[in-house]
């Protein structure tokens, strides 16, 4: 059962990924991305990480993609649908590079051994719910990165404002 679900999610993810990078219409790409994120969330659920799945949908699908859509509408590309989505020169270099990287990664995937196991076994996580497990880790050992992540978001807010502001005419 789990295997079937895994295969479904995995195949859809990869298929959607391929379609995203080859689609002419960028709005279509973004919408397909939305679908992809949902299936990623499904994969997370299979991994017993329901908190992550929720965060994925909320943040990625709900916030980031919306932002992308806004910018796409701002840019207003009507004529792009008629042109090739790919770069003129260097298309093949990109393909070659990607395939090379793929081979390298696969070689790594099948040739490594797992390190020492930690103490959050699957049963324990299932017992105290994933959210609580995450909370236990974040708010004790990783409190500092947590604060820094908050700072990064603050910077992003300010940066975004500064970049997208309209220029002052006259002073």
């Amino acid at each position: 059962m789990v295997q079937l679900l895994f295969f479904y999610f995995a195949l859809v993810v990869i298929g959607l990924g391929l379609r995203i990078v080859t689609c002419k219409n960028p709005v279509h790409s973004v919408l397909l991305m939305l679908l992809l994120f949902f299936h990623m969330a499904g994969l997370y659920l299979l991994l017993n990480a329901e908190f992550l799945a929720a965060v994925q949908v909320i943040v990625y699908a709900g916030a980031i993609l919306v932002l992308y859509l806004f910018v796409l509408f701002l840019v207003n590309l009507r004529e792009e649908i008629k042109m090739s989505p790919f770069v003129q020169k260097g298309k093949w270099a990109g393909l070659v590079a990607a395939l090379a990287l793929l081979i390298t990664f696969l070689r790594g995937v099948f040739n490594f051994t797992l390190g020492p196991h930690g103490q959050y076994t699957i049963e324990k996580v299932q017992q105290i719910t994933h959210t609580k497990a995450m909370g236990e880790a974040i708010y004790t050992t990783y409190i500092l990165p947590f604060e820094i992540a908050g700072l990064i978001l603050l910077v992003a807010v300010i940066g975004g404002l500064a970049l997208a502001k309209k220029e002052d005419k006259g002073a």
């Binding site: 995995a10 993810v13 990869i14 990924g17 391929l18 995203i20 990078v21 960028p26 790409s29 973004v30 991305m33 994969l43 992308y68 910018v71 796409l72 840019v75 590309l77 792009e80 042109m83 090739s84 989505p85 790919f86 770069v87 260097g90 298309k91 270099a93 990109g94 393909l95 590079a97 990607a98 395939l99 990287l101 793929l102 990664f105 696969l106 995937v109």
Partner: peptide
């Protein structure tokens, strides 16, 4: 799966004309 998705992402980054698609 993760590796394949990554390489698809690389391919997309290296071949798309639109900057926003690169970011995607």
């Amino acid at each position: 799966v993760s590796a394949m998705l990554f390489c698809i992402g690389v391919f997309g980054f290296l071949t798309r004309r639109n900057i926003i698609m690169m970011l995607l």
